[in-house]
Amino acid sequence: MKRFLLYATLVVGAIIFLYPFVWMIAATLKPEPEIAGFHIIPRHLTFESYHFVFNKLPIIRGFVNSLFVSMIVTASVIIFGSMTGYALSRLRFRGRATVYNVALLTMMVPAQLTIIPLYTMIVGFGWVNSYLALIVPAMMSSYSSLLFRQFFLSIPQSLVEAAKLDGCSDWRILFSIFYPLSKPVITTVAILTFMGIWNDVLWPLMVIRDEQLMTMPLLVTLFAVGGGADARLGVQLAAATLLALPVIIAYIFLQRNLIESMASSGMKN
């Protein structure tokens, strides 16, 4: 009996978290009057909502924009973050302690404080409505640098010494010896950075106004807020589904990695 209750609770929980998504995807395939109902299988299957979205929104372009921006930023955060992490953990140079402390300190600066001045700066650079505004400010992250430093500290120093005897430069040590050893931390940094950029709306909302340059979440947000969907439920849900689908697919394959990375980010904050 107790076992049964336990499973019942867990299953009810799972339904609460999963059913809305299933319902959402189903609703996008129903005609408008059918949406207000609990059933999942559409009585009349229609792709009308998707037609509408694809006609109204450059959604493919948005997807490509999102992918492009997220990938560049992720690559940059990994490369520069690992360089910084390597220097902070393995190299001796004047000011190292200062850089380390500054990195710790910048993590405590809330984004609310800098977002407006940062925006005015981007306007000053003439970067509004350009990929640069989306990419450049996010190219480095103190948090990721510190994650790399933390991880690199656990790699035996003797490995470095030996590589140096073989005439390896620090660059080669980092990229061809440390990288293969650092898969866990690279995965974590990649997932956190990618998800952060992929899902962000506030910053793109500020700096991008040209529909052709908009990221997918921004397109969908403005579509929902700006009434582009003509108050049609199915259309709004279709736009949301298109935005969710890549993440859901990635989640099915990378579920363990995603959960662990996101949980670890919580732990270390």
């Binding site: 350009s130 640069l132 450049v136």
Partner: peptide
């Protein structure tokens, strides 16, 4: 890497004009 950074900076400057 530094090159990439500088290139980006330059690209941004050209965008300013």
């Amino acid at each position: 890497m530094r090159l990439l950074f500088i290139t980006l900076l330059l690209a941004s400057l050209s965008n300013c004009t």
